[in-house]
Computed example of a mutant assay.
Amino acid sequence: MTKPAKIHVRFADCDMMGHVNNAVYLSYFEMARMHYFEQVIDKKWDWKKQGIVLVKNTVEYMGPVFLHDEPQIFVKVSHVGNKSFTMIYDLQVNGITKTKGESVLVCFDFLANKTAEVYPEMKEALTKIS
Rank of each mutant, 00 (worst) to 15 (best):
T127C: 09
N57R: 12
K83G: 11
V59T: 11
A116H: 15
A5T: 05
Y119T: 11
I7F: 09
L126I: 03
K6D: 08
L54Y: 02
I52H: 02
A116E: 15
G95V: 14
K48G: 02
D46A: 04
V9R: 08
G101M: 15
T86R: 10
L105A: 13
K43V: 01
M16E: 00
A125C: 07
T99W: 01
P120Y: 06
S103Y: 12
G101P: 14
D42A: 15
K49C: 08
T97M: 05
V104H: 09
G63I: 12
G18D: 06
E30Q: 14
G101T: 14
D13N: 12
K43N: 01
F74P: 01
G51L: 03
M62G: 09
R33N: 04
L126R: 02
S84D: 13
K49T: 10
N82E: 13
L105Q: 15
V75L: 05
V104S: 07
Y36W: 08
N21G: 04
E117V: 15
D13G: 13
P4L: 04
T58L: 02
K83S: 14
A12L: 11
G101K: 14
D69A: 02
G81R: 14
G95Y: 15
K48I: 03
L54Q: 10
I41D: 03
V104Y: 08
H35C: 14
T99Y: 02
R33Y: 01
D109V: 10
C14G: 02
K98A: 10
T58S: 07
F74S: 03
M16Y: 00
T99S: 12
R10L: 13
W45N: 08
T2Y: 06
K3P: 07
I7M: 07
N94P: 10
V9P: 06
A23M: 01
F37Y: 13
G101V: 15
D90L: 08
C14M: 03
Y119E: 12
E38R: 12
S84H: 08
T97G: 07
K128Y: 00
D42T: 12
M31G: 08
P71S: 10
I41K: 04
M62C: 07
H35N: 15
L91S: 05
M16T: 00
P64M: 11
F85K: 12
W47I: 04
D46Y: 00
E70W: 02
A5H: 11
G18K: 00
P120I: 09
L111T: 12
H68Q: 02
I96V: 15
A23R: 12
G81M: 13
D15Q: 02
N21L: 03
N57S: 14
F11E: 00
N94M: 13
M62Q: 11
K44M: 03
W45A: 10
T127L: 11
K128W: 00
K44L: 02
H35V: 13
K48S: 06
K3H: 10
N82G: 12
G95H: 15
H79D: 04
T2V: 09
E124N: 07
I88G: 01
F110E: 01
S103N: 15
Q39E: 10
F85W: 13
M16N: 00
S27W: 10
I129V: 07
M1N: 01
S84R: 06
I88A: 01
S84L: 12
E60F: 00
I7N: 04
L67P: 01
K56P: 05
A116Q: 15
F66P: 04
V59L: 13
L67W: 00
T115V: 13
K128V: 02
S27V: 08
P4N: 04
V75F: 02
D90C: 07
T115I: 10
F37G: 05
